[in-house]
C-alpha cells in the first residue's frame, strides 16, 4: 500500500492534472525493497574440552530520534522557499466538504483577477469538476486527485507547482480535500492557512475539530446570508474558535450574495 495516498498498486494514487491536459498517473511509488538475504550465523562450535557457544546475533539499537512527518516538512519548506523567492502568497484553504471553499474561490477570483495574478491548485479525491469551475474563469489551475487519500501532502503540491509556471508577485490558492481532520497535520508550504466554516454547521465545530482551528491563521465564516434561517450563535462560534486559537482573524462572508467579501479582499491585497 502506498503511504502518501493510501492507494493500492492498481493505480489509485494521486493524479495531478493541469486543466486541458491529458489525464495521467503521476506519482512516484518509491518502494524500493532491497532484501539482501545474507544469513550469517557465526556458529563456530569449537569443541575443545569446555563448551564455548558463540551466538553472534548482532542485535543493535539505533537511536533515531526522527520526526515522523519530517519528509512532508522538508518538501513543505522547499515549497515555502520557492514561494518566498518569487513573492508568491500561498494559501491553504481547508474546511469540511460543502462549506463553500470553491464558491469563495470563484467569487474571489472573479472579482480580483483583473488586479492580481492568481493560480489555483485543487485537491479532491475524484473528478476534475472543481478545476473546470476555476478554468472557466481563465485562471491557471492544476487538479490533484488524491484517489483514496484524505488530504494533500507537500510532495503533491511540489509536483503541481511545477506544472503551473507561476509568475512572480502572485497569489496561489491551494484548495485542500474537504476534510476537517486529516489536512491539519500536513504543512504544504503555505504562508497562511484559512479554515472555512459555514453558518449551517454547528457552532461548536472548532471544539469538535480543534486541530484544524489550532493550525489556521484565518477563519472565514461563510453563508451569512442564511443567518435568518439557521439557529447559530455567531458570537459563541467565534468564542469557541478563539478558545482553540486566540490568534485567528475572522471574515464573515456570503460567497453567493457577495456580502462581506471586501474585507477579505483588502486582507488579500495587503499581503502582496
Amino acid at each position: 500500500m502506498c503511504g502518501t495516498c493510501g492507494c493500492g498498486t492498481d493505480g489509485n494514487g494521486p493524479t495531478i492534472t493541469k486543466h486541458g491536459e491529458h489525464h495521467h498517473h503521476n506519482h512516484n511509488h518509491g518502494h524500493s525493497h532491497s532484501h539482501d538475504h545474507s544469513h550469517e550465523h557465526g556458529h563456530d562450535h569449537t569443541h575443545d574440552h569446555d563448551h564455548s557457544h558463540e551466538h553472534s546475533h548482532k542485535q543493535r539499537v539505533i537511536e533515531v530520534e526522527k520526526d515522523v512527518l519530517q519528509n512532508n516538512q522538508l518538501l513543505a519548506s522547499r515549497n515555502r522557499g520557492y514561494f518566498e523567492a518569487k513573492n508568491i502568497f500561498a494559501l491553504n484553504l481547508v474546511s469540511s466538504p460543502g462549506s463553500g471553499k470553491t464558491s469563495i474561490l470563484e467569487r474571489t477570483l472573479n472579482d480580483l483577477k483583473s488586479e492580481l495574478p492568481f493560480y489555483v491548485i485543487e485537491g479532491d479525491q475524484q473528478t476534475l469538476n472543481d478545476a473546470d469551475r476555476i478554468a472557466a474563469l481563465d485562471i491557471p489551475v492544476v487538479q490533484i486527485n488524491t484517489g483514496k487519500g484524505c488530504h494533500l501532502e507537500s510532495d503533491m503540491v511540489y509536483d503541481a507547482v511545477k506544472k503551473l509556471n507561476m509568475e512572480n508577485d502572485s497569489i496561489l490558492m491551494i484548495e485542500n480535500v474537504g476534510n476537517l481532520v486529516c489536512p491539519s497535520m500536513f504543512d504544504l508550504g503555505e504562508r497562511n492557512r484559512v479554515v472555512i466554516i459555514s453558518t449551517t454547521e454547528g457552532e461548536d465545530k472548532p471544539l469538535k475539530y480543534p486541530d484544524m482551528f489550532h493550525t489556521a491563521d484565518v477563519c472565514i465564516i461563510n453563508k451569512i446570508d442564511l443567518l435568518p434561517y439557521v439557529n447559530i450563535d455567531m458570537d459563541r462560534l467565534k468564542n469557541y474558535a478563539l478558545q482553540v486559537n486566540p490568534n485567528l482573524t475572522f471574515f464573515e462572508v456570503s460567497a453567493t450574495a457577495g456580502t462581506g467579501m471586501d474585507a477579505w479582499y483588502n486582507w488579500l491585497q495587503s499581503k502582496i
Binding site: 539482501d36 539505533i62 533515531v64 512532508n72 486529516c182
Partner: peptide, 28 residues
C-alpha cells in the same frame, strides 16, 4: 484516516535506517 500516512512515514524511516546500518529487520 491520516494515521495510514503516518505509519507509512514510520516505515520509510525504519527502512532508511536499517539500510544505513545494513541490518535485516527491526525487532523493536
Amino acid at each position: 484516516m491520516h494515521e495510514l500516512s503516518i505509519v507509512m512515514g514510520i516505515v520509510k524511516i525504519a527502512e532508511d535506517e536499517t539500510t544505513k546500518v545494513e541490518a535485516k529487520e527491526v525487532t523493536n
